[in-house]
Amino acid sequence: MTVDKKAALAAAELARLELSPEEGGELGEKLVEDFTKIVGYMDILNEIDTSLVEPLYSPMTDPEEPRKDVPRDEEAGAEKARSILEKGTRVSGHFFTVPRVV
């Protein structure tokens, strides 16, 4: 599959990434070049017929069972919540804040 600049830029938009000068500035030449090369290499997979193969998403074996529906320790939980909020990047009162969502 040939992958063009458009595909690279669409992925960048989905991933909320900008192209920086290191990537060849606004045109992203270096990025697109590397990206095209890497994706092109992946086509090596076309050599194999996997039509009858069940995908393997994880090698996990004997995983844990679901946990019981028991609430956390109240005091420790409150302390942790406080700590997470306190260490937040931008916090106003009891809230995390971000630019206005329209």
């Binding site: 106003s92 009162g93 009891h94 809230f95 995390f96 804040t97 971000v98 630019p99 206005r100 969502v101």
Partner: peptide, 14 residues
């Protein structure tokens, strides 16, 4: 998400 007009920001409660 709560929208705070005074701050001009969105407040997030998780």
């Amino acid at each position: 998400c709560l929208h705070d007009a005074r701050l001009g920001a969105t407040l997030v409660d998780l």
